[in-house]
Write a protein that binds this DNA or RNA. Sequence first.
DNA 1: TGCTTATACATAACATTCTTATGTATTATT
DNA 2: AATAATACATAAGAATGTTATGTATAAGCA
Lengths: 117, 117
Amino acid sequence: MIYSSELIKGTLKTIVLKLLADHHRMYGYEITQKVKELTFEKIQITEGALYPTLHALENDGLVTVESEFIGKRVRKYYTLSPSGKTKTTEKVNELADFMNTMKFLLDIPSPTGFSAT
Amino acid sequence: MIYSSELIKGTLKTIVLKLLADHHRMYGYEITQKVKELTFEKIQITEGALYPTLHALENDGLVTVESEFIGKRVRKYYTLSPSGKTKTTEKVNELADFMNTMKFLLDIPSPTGFSAT
DNA sequence: TGCTTATACATAACATTCTTATGTATTATT
DNA sequence: AATAATACATAAGAATGTTATGTATAAGCA
């Protein structure tokens, strides 16, 4: 099952920032594959969505870019800037808060299992 | 704190459907107030977003409408149709699944407290 | 070797969905 | 009497994704 596209809207930037925070240095195509892998194919980031997003992050100074040649092919590595790290924390926290609110609003039970946090 | 607007995108229809499932019969303005109340002002549905959404739900046959006069003012009550009830379950389940995936992807801990479900 | 698939970038036309602004009108509050 | 709240509606614009297209290299397989 792949999630309906509206759900992805508004979360893509957060996903990309968080992946960069966890993996330090990634290139675009790698990000699409990582998301696919980590979500068991349930979230598929299209290139038409990803590349403009990466360019926006760069424009906002949240990431820095290094181009490298792998053979004859260019690969662009993205790394979080200090402000990007701050932003990541903010975005992830906001999304976590939002999801709790939605869970309450929609009366969604917690996933099966024990937890004591 | 009010959530950044992108987060609401894609979830509005689900919220409206679920409220109608829980309260059976509601009118537009009432929905905006209920969401505000239930989310402690964190989610504020604007009228420019709500009314087109309600019209879309009606067009899709997911809700039925009854107009009533309260004094001289029209009020439009919305009720879930059978297919609307089915749709509500589907949308809520999909969102629940999506949120679990996002929690895993973003490494978000469960909210504080004990739970054994 | 030749064909296909995967890798790797990019952008443009289009669709969706929300924000912001505007409009109309009734009812309640100060 | 003036303002705020109730209650509907729509239109212009912004944001952000999909789909399609383009270019090119590298890898796998028959």
